[in-house]
Amino acid sequence: MFYIPFTCEKFFWVLKYNKSIKRGSLLKIIEVKNLTYAYAKGKEVLKNLNIEIEKGEFVAIIGHNGSGKSTFAKLLNALFVPKEGEVLVGGLNTKDKNSVHEIRKKVGVVFQNPDNQLVASIVEDDVAFGPENIGAKREEIEERINFALDAVNMQEFRKRTPTKLSGGQKQRVAIAGVLAIKPEVLVLDESTAMLDPRGRREVIEIVKDLNKKGMTVILITHYMEEVVNADRVIVLSEGEKILEGTPKQIFAKKEELTRVGLSLPPATILADKLREKGVNIGEVLTPQELKEELCKLFVKI
């Protein structure tokens, strides 16, 4: 009578314990070790970089122009190969020519300009491009197109031509094209930079949603308000990792960010300014948090 709950408890404890072990070591999907990269002739774009990314994590990488963040994206899927050090994707080394295909199946990269990523004149044909490349059968391609278009909420545009869509919609098609390969990691290399605020919101919502469903996301950006959704933020400057931590931790280091040419999220800036004027307001990152803080003040009055 007594020992059954006891064993149950122990059982759950073991489960929990196992999970923490896995989170610690086994589920690293991307390992970047002592990575250094330079273009043919010129100075090093990335210097001695060490980054580990776990399965299911949402990591944001920020840095001003020329910080090497876009180069980093291309190193993740073996478009570039490190000069020194290595990049491991699910244990596969990007230097190994034979695993390049496997690596690209695991890491999907969405680039900046949606116009230059779409290969076909019809949405569904474009999404089919990836599955066709990995040799999927017709029925499977169909299933993957449905999955990808549903994920980015573009099913109704399936038969349309991409040139007639808005920037945000085009970029969603580009994301679908990558998702159709069913990657484990989704890398967005400044994929919102060319979009209007609305398009940017559309894309970020979809990325957040995908992450909730278990997709590992690496978001490379220079928009601070996009970073607040991440589990972890990495700040690059001149090819080096200078800061790493949760969005709260990062945005607390205002001086260091401004020194490398980065700003704070708009809501944080507003809160800071209010604090300067003597308003008693807590730390905020998102407009939502700001609203809540302001409401608290209102209630106090």
Binding site: L79, K105, F111, P131, V178
Partner: peptide, 17 residues
């Protein structure tokens, strides 16, 4: 780059939708 990123590697082993 985008085509490479989407696993394009020529006609070998490619299927058609």
């Amino acid at each position: 780059d985008a085509m490479d990123a989407r696993c394009y590697s020529g006609s070998k082993g490619r299927t058609k939708y």
